[in-house]
Amino acid sequence: MWYWLFKYIFMGPILALLGRPRVEGLEHVPRSGPAILASNHLAVADSFYLPLVVPRRITFLAKREYFTGTGVKGWFIRWFYSTTGQVPIDRSDADAAQAALQTAERLLKQGKLLGMYPEGTRSPDGRLYKGKTGLARLALHTGVPVIPVAMIGTEKVNPPGSKMWRFGRVTVRFGRPMDFSRFEGLAGNRFIERAVTDEVIYELMRLSGQEYVDIYAASIKNGGSGGEESASDADRIPQPAVG
């Protein structure tokens, strides 16, 4: 109930006024059944505008820290994510990442629409970064379609690092569902998972018009080189919530 109240009453009208969202390709989102919405990630606002324009309910896997805060702020964040039906996951190591993968599989088996950010975190500079292969592993394990989604203009409405939101124009562009059934039985093959991930990222680049950078966004934020993906990174579910 709270999901729809936030969408249509408490937050949706304000978001619509600020971003005047324009939607393209919504017909590519199935009206029922499981699917993965794989989106680029420019701003916190992505996690609000994507559910705003999709008629179906979207479930995001939210990092565990949003459910463990203390004080009034921590309580509110925990309440908000819980009442809107988001699912906490632990991304601290490879074992936790495997548990997150199993959680995502369970949600898809229930016929849910799962929102994910293949880059793993928000872009630090508006460019599109290398994708984590957890999304590919999930798609190959479940066989569900992956629908690429380009968020455009959200960083103008909600500038990263700023607590102030501004008026702007947001475009949410959906691409055709991507079918990876040709790789059936090859889940767990790191070369195949990398190929699938790169295919999704290429489609996001085409839809969004972003410049692509062949390193991980998280490594830029952490001051690293971003060149290689560790075994635990390969297994990790890409962060699909505010990050």
Rank of each mutant, 00 (worst) to 15 (best):
residue 112 K to N: 13
residue 225 S to R: 14
residue 220 I to F: 12
residue 192 I to W: 07
residue 228 E to I: 11
residue 221 K to T: 14
residue 196 V to E: 10
residue 152 I to H: 03
residue 129 Y to Q: 04
residue 107 L to K: 12
residue 220 I to W: 02
residue 158 N to T: 05
residue 96 A to C: 02
residue 178 M to Q: 11
residue 146 V to H: 06
residue 153 G to M: 01
residue 167 F to R: 07
residue 235 D to W: 15
residue 199 E to Y: 05
residue 158 N to W: 14
residue 150 A to P: 00
residue 157 V to Q: 02
residue 110 Q to Y: 03
residue 155 E to F: 01
residue 123 S to A: 00
residue 234 A to E: 12
residue 115 G to L: 04
residue 227 G to A: 07
residue 153 G to Q: 00
residue 223 G to D: 08
residue 163 K to A: 11
residue 177 P to M: 06
residue 106 R to E: 14
residue 89 I to R: 08
residue 228 E to S: 13
residue 142 T to D: 04
residue 230 S to W: 01
residue 97 A to R: 10
residue 90 D to A: 03
residue 223 G to N: 08
residue 203 E to S: 10
residue 138 L to W: 09
residue 91 R to W: 04
residue 231 A to E: 14
residue 200 V to I: 13
residue 107 L to I: 02
residue 148 P to T: 01
residue 112 K to V: 01
residue 134 G to A: 07
residue 172 V to H: 02
residue 100 A to L: 08
residue 121 T to C: 03
residue 114 L to A: 05
residue 113 L to C: 07
residue 181 S to P: 03
residue 204 L to E: 00
residue 89 I to K: 08
residue 185 G to I: 11
residue 109 K to F: 08
residue 220 I to L: 15
residue 101 L to T: 14
residue 99 A to M: 11
residue 159 P to W: 01
residue 180 F to Y: 12
residue 118 P to T: 03
residue 119 E to L: 03
residue 130 K to D: 03
residue 202 Y to H: 12
residue 109 K to C: 03
residue 203 E to W: 05
residue 222 N to C: 05
residue 123 S to V: 06
residue 226 G to F: 11
residue 205 M to D: 06
residue 235 D to P: 02
residue 212 Y to L: 11
residue 150 A to I: 00
residue 193 E to N: 05
residue 159 P to L: 04
residue 236 R to Y: 08
residue 116 M to C: 09
residue 111 G to C: 03
residue 157 V to C: 11
residue 172 V to K: 04
residue 143 G to Q: 11
residue 138 L to D: 04
residue 184 E to P: 02
residue 124 P to G: 10
residue 194 R to G: 07
residue 201 I to A: 00
residue 166 R to S: 01
residue 170 V to S: 09
residue 121 T to Q: 02
residue 114 L to Y: 12
residue 217 A to H: 05
residue 152 I to A: 08
residue 166 R to E: 00
residue 91 R to I: 10
residue 141 H to A: 14
residue 153 G to L: 01
residue 233 D to H: 15
